[in-house]
Design a protein around this nucleic acid. Structure first.
Length: 724
RNA sequence: GCCGGUGUGGCGGAAUUGGUAGACGCAGCGGAUUCAAAAUCCGCCGCUUAAUAGGCGUGUCGGUUCGAGUCCGACCACCGGCACCA
């Protein structure tokens, strides 16, 4: 089933992708597309080592991906993560000269640095193992060849780069400092990536932590060129001094601060035609090929001389074969299937498949026109897009959401969509987690038991003491609260809860337990509590209707209790509207309605005006809960005598007059500690409040024997008496 | 290691702009109702304390402030991401 789908859909996808992105240059944006040709399909020399080589040039869009973050309504933390990931930095790209031997390989060695002010402290340069200089040097140096090969086998992830041991080997070549003419050694370094930047870095061990570690290990010189805050030579014996400061030991640049040194050195390099100021991005191009069977085929074929070209329309679609055989050796089965890959004319079909991020980068657009089998997208995509509200886990904050933004812009530039961004608003919801229970089995592994099959014993405070399996009554170990998963057997099927309590209850529980972006801890008793509340609202409405038909509200005749309930009603409407509309904290909106329900329950006034005030409150409860428990409120709205459906009823409006308070309670503090609560008329002036606060018996007790230095009155909140 | 986040009662969480810590709910305890139970209703419920008076209390240590869960500095623990898990 899965295989079949992968094969068919994969073939369809790559056909569409190819048609729209590969072979045809759309008229509308042809000019743009020509210099933003999305495929960078190339053979790299290290193909022999098994590295895949199809990249999408997301870096061409780095600037726009960064700038447009300001235009989307996304959580700030996600935008921050993406900004950091794109990593725009201003620096200088400059060229080192090379000695006679190295200049046989290439003319000069280009590096990028954000710290040109430290240029005079360069004591060596580092190149990637895949760098031409590293390869050339390895030709006559088996140890270096072995080192390069080892580096190629290593990972390229950030975590690998940051945590691995920094290692290197001298190439024997010398680089020539562009300003001083000094010769410095060229090292191959395992932490320099060919895919990133120029594949080479200048090293200033005195002022960069990683360079310092490396220089110490290989006994390379460490020369300070930046003074510390006091203007002295910093101590660089143990660690690098990485802060900015004034230049020293830098000849004519001595005494300049970071900014002026940056400009002066950059200008000098420009004058000498040895460098230029450049903006650099941390973002790397998107390697989209995977050595896997599962995935959309990449519409490329490879020629006998190592060339790669896109397939033509006539050669499409490519369907993955279904009669594949998996063996113990692992790897993609189609790599051993000449029937699939050998095209018979000397050309080989590409057997790598696309990264699954590829499909998840545009599925939202495809959903709008999924029944169109002739085109990738049609005009319906424009009608629906951008997505108004996109909901997904925080784990997608960078990769999926950045790739999808990139892909959307790519589709825009090919005339497929008109919008600039795929997702207008974003909500990153948390995971559902639940308790875990297990026993250690004979093999030392863990057998996990579903929470439904376990009974937990608690002490009188409700703390979990022990747990037993219901089926045999024997103890099980209480594990942590973890993300629901098959492997931990702590999943709860929401359907069984829906069958038992109804969809409203399950929905209410999930929205009440925590704000949506936090993890949701599953709790059976919490579900039962939610069910109790639904029943309570149901009873409240029916009891209210049974109490009689209310007259029209007459604001002028209300007593204090009636006014208080009206105030509560309108405060609740205000809070719920804000919580749902602006804050998306549904849990606090529900809590506010619960408070209102509690207030209505205590309100036993069945006078004509009492019923009228209660009616207003009850209707507010039903309307405010209608997005949370739509089924129950639909029926209750009819019970309240409305002909229209609750879904068509307008959201309740607040009455500012109802929220006005006649009296206010102020908290009185002495030196910031709560000592009294006093009630005042809403219009009491500062002097009255101050005098009453100072006269309070308990306050007197605490200021007795002290001098009152200051009295702070925060209107509507508190009084703080400062005394010592 | 780097980037982003979280840390508050027995538990989930609230406190929105520096101003009453613990709203609301769960669990627990006590009571009413009932022949009994379920359901429902009422009360209590951070720790300490005889107390309605007080002391302590928001991961740890320090700081700013009349006042800090909230701001600043240092640290600890946990969660997400780190480009081939999808």
């Amino acid at each position: 089933m899965v295989l079949r789908q992968a094969g068919r859909e994969g073939g369809r996808l790559q056909e569409e992708l190819h048609r729209q992105l590969g072979s045809g240059r759309p008229d509308r944006t042809g000019q743009r597309a020509s210099h933003r040709w999305p495929w960078l399909a190339f053979r790299r020399a290290d193909r022999a080592q098994g590295n895949p080589a199809v990249f999408l040039r997301i870096t061409d869009y780095a600037e726009e991906l960064l700038a447009d973050l300001d235009k989307v309504e996304w959580p700030e933390q996600v935008k921050t993560m993406q900004r950091n990931w794109i990593g725009k930095s201003r620096g200088v790209e400059l060229s080192f000269g090379l000695d006679t031997a190295a200049s046989q390989v290439q003319e000069s060695l280009t590096v990028f640095t954000t710290r040109p002010d430290t240029l005079m402290g360069v004591t060596y340069v580092g190149v990637a193992a895949a760098h031409p200089l590293a390869k050339a040097a390895a030709e006559h140096n088996p140890a270096l060849a072995e080192f390069n090969a080892e580096c190629a086998r290593g990972g390229t992830s950030e975590a690998d780069m940051a945590t691995m041991e920094k290692r290197g080997m001298d190439t024997g070549y010398k680089a020539i400092h562009p300003l001083t003419g000094r010769e410095v050694p060229v090292f191959v370094a395992n932490f320099v990536l060919m895919e990133y930047g120029t594949g080479a870095v200048m090293a200033v061990p005195a002022h960069d932590e990683r360079d310092h570690e490396f220089a110490t290990k290989y006994e390379l010189p460490i020369e300070a060129v930046i003074a510390d805050a006091e203007g002295n030579t910093p101590d660089i014996s143990e660690a690098a001094f990485t802060e900015r400061g004034v230049l020293i030991n830098s000849g004519e640049f001595n005494g300049l601060d970071f900014e002026s040194a940056f400009d002066a050195i950059a200008n000098r390099l420009v004058e000498q035609n040895r460098g230029e100021i450049k903006t650099n991005f941390r973002l790397r191009d998107w390697g989209v090929s995977r050595q896997r069977y599962w995935g959309a085929p990449i519409p490329v074929k490879n020629g006998p001389n190592g060339e790669s070209i896109p397939l033509t329309d006539a050669e499409l679609p490519v369907a993955l074969p279904l009669d594949v055989e998996f063996d113990a050796s692992g790897g993609s089965p189609i790599k051993k299937m000449p029937s699939f890959s050998d095209l018979g004319d000397g050309w080989q079909r590409e057997t790598d498949t696309f990264d699954t991020f590829m499909e998840s980068s545009w599925y939202y657009a495809r959903f709008c026109c999924a029944d169109n089998h002739d085109a990738m997208l049609d005009e319906r995509a424009n009608y629906w897009l951008p997505v108004d509200y996109y909901i997904g886990g925080i784990e997608h904050a960078i990769l999926h959401l950045l790739y999808a933004r990139f892909f959307h812009k790519l589709m825009r530039d090919f005339g497929l969509v008109e919008s600039n961004e795929p997702f207008k608003q974003l909500l990153t919801q948390g995971m559902v987690i639940a308790d875990t229970f297990y026993r250690i089995n004979e093999k030392g592994g863990r057998d996990w038991f579903n929470p439904l099959d376990v009974e937990v014993k608690t002490d009188d405070k409700g703390r979990a003491l022990s747990a037993t399996l219901l089926s045999d009554g024997l103890p099980v170990v209480i594990g942590g609260t973890e993300k629901m998963s098959k492997s931990k057997n702590n999943g709860v099927d929401p359907q069984s809860m829906i069958d038992r309590f109804g969809a409203d209850t399950v929905r209410l529980f999930m929205m009440f337990a925590a704000p949506p972006e936090q993890s949701l801890e599953w709790s059976d008793s919490g579900v039962e509590g939610a069910h109790r509340f639904v029943k309570r609202v149901w009873r409240l409405v029916h009891e209210h209707v049974a109490a009689g038909t209310p007259v029209a509200l007459d604001m002028t005749t209300l007593n204090d209790d009636q006014k208080a309930l009206r105030r509560k009603t309108h405060e609740t409407i205000a809070k719920c509207s804000d919580d749902i509309g602006r804050r998306t904290t549904f849990n606090t909106a529900i809590a506010a309605v619960m408070e209102l329900v509690n207030a209505i329950s205590r309100f036993e006034d069945t006078s004509p005006q009492g019923l009228a005030v209660a009616r207003e409150a009850v209707e507010a409860c039903v309307l405010l809960l209608s997005p949370i428990i739509p089924h129950a409120t639909h029926t209750l709205w009819a019970t309240l005598g409305h002909a229209e459906a609750v879904i068509d009823a307008p959201w309740p409006a607040t009455d500012a007059d109802a929220m006005k308070k006649d009296s206010i309670e102020l908290v009185v503090q002495v030196n910031g500690k709560l000592r009294a609560r006093l009630s005042f008329p809403a219009d009491a002036d500062r002097d009255t409040i101050e005098a009453a606060a100072l006269a309070d018996a308990n306050v007197v007790k605490f200021v007795d024997g002290k001098t009152v230095r200051k009295v702070i009155v925060v209107p509507g909140k508190l009084v703080n008496i400062v005394a010592n």
